[in-house]
Design a protein around this nucleic acid. Sequence first.
DNA 1: AGCCGTTGTTGCTGCTGTCAACACGGAGTA
DNA 2: TACTCCGTGTTGACAGCAGCAACAACGGCT
Lengths: 198, 198
Amino acid sequence: MPTKKPRGQYHHGDLRAALLEVAPAVIAERGLHGLSLRECARRLGVSHAAPYRHFADKETLLTALAGEGFRRLVRAGREAMRDLADPRDRLRAYGLAYVRFALEHPEHHRVMFSCEDDGRIAPEDRAAGDEAFELLRETTEEATGLSGGAEMPATLSFWSLAHGLSMLLLDGRIPAEHTATPEAVEALAASVFDRWRG
Amino acid sequence: MPTKKPRGQYHHGDLRAALLEVAPAVIAERGLHGLSLRECARRLGVSHAAPYRHFADKETLLTALAGEGFRRLVRAGREAMRDLADPRDRLRAYGLAYVRFALEHPEHHRVMFSCEDDGRIAPEDRAAGDEAFELLRETTEEATGLSGGAEMPATLSFWSLAHGLSMLLLDGRIPAEHTATPEAVEALAASVFDRWRG
DNA sequence: AGCCGTTGTTGCTGCTGTCAACACGGAGTA
DNA sequence: TACTCCGTGTTGACAGCAGCAACAACGGCT
């Protein structure tokens, strides 16, 4: 039901949004290398050149997808921290949300951190990535009591921890016993974050 | 001078090794997506299908490249730890070597952690990756005094830290002030590892 | 009604991965 | 020495892809 397309309609309706929706599905099936604009077009019942009306090229679609991913990550982070008062609990919750996001949206996560930055990222997508970092920085600031730049090493180390764990999980490099069930993963993430001190 | 090819010689000499040498150069220039077997062949003055005598397909070349990367990483890690007696110093040295390796060989590092594991990795390359992990696990064991599986969370958290920092550095997501000079990066890495406790 | 910008279409070029058939040349054997 | 064989490299194909250009339908505007 993603695309409701009345019989014989020439125009699609919202091809741009449909592309951003179908692309992760293609990536999930065929891998990031296996993604092609033509395949996306095919699945949406649209001609092979139609996507170019909405994205200058394939890379542009990917950066848009990355931007969407960062927006969702920020939303998930805020959601996870919402009812927590203790800044250290909040930071930890963000970390867990980060890892959970990577596992639940592996396609987005991979795209978010694989676009070889040519500097041609749309401002709004650039901003989405910056906001995810800024949210982490503020939370770390509160959790550590550091500020004025002194919080940066703490921020970066916590980010490294969450990011590294996410990547290793996605790459299947974590021994199976720790990834068998969602609870096991959650426990692993918790014990990983326990080894961090602000 | 990578390829010394006597005048008019039909056979190349060691095309396989030459491919493993030229591929990172192509990646460095055109990015991972921009790598093509045909371009490698062109640079080696060889026909476009010649690489297929040595690699079943493009993916196979990439996994071989990843294997080579892991072998070098292990070598760099051992080298960095060689003269250190205190296990905690050794672990830290491995971490620094890990980050340094990523920055000095970004092409290898990216390939090492981007092959979407289809299970068709050659045994010797699989083993190379496992050895890098095993070296880290042993070192963590010594540094923490934990063993029998209890060292795993510590191992994985340290790996996450080193791996996450490497990836973020490679992706250009670390604020510029910390990446301006090699010394700044080294200092950042040190302060990141300082926030880890076994 | 008529105009025109947006969106989608068809058809092309040049590149790529991959395969099959063939060619070269060195190693071993008669 | 001559012959054969196998590993390695070549040529020539095919299909799929990114991206461009010229054309066509739609829909909102006057």
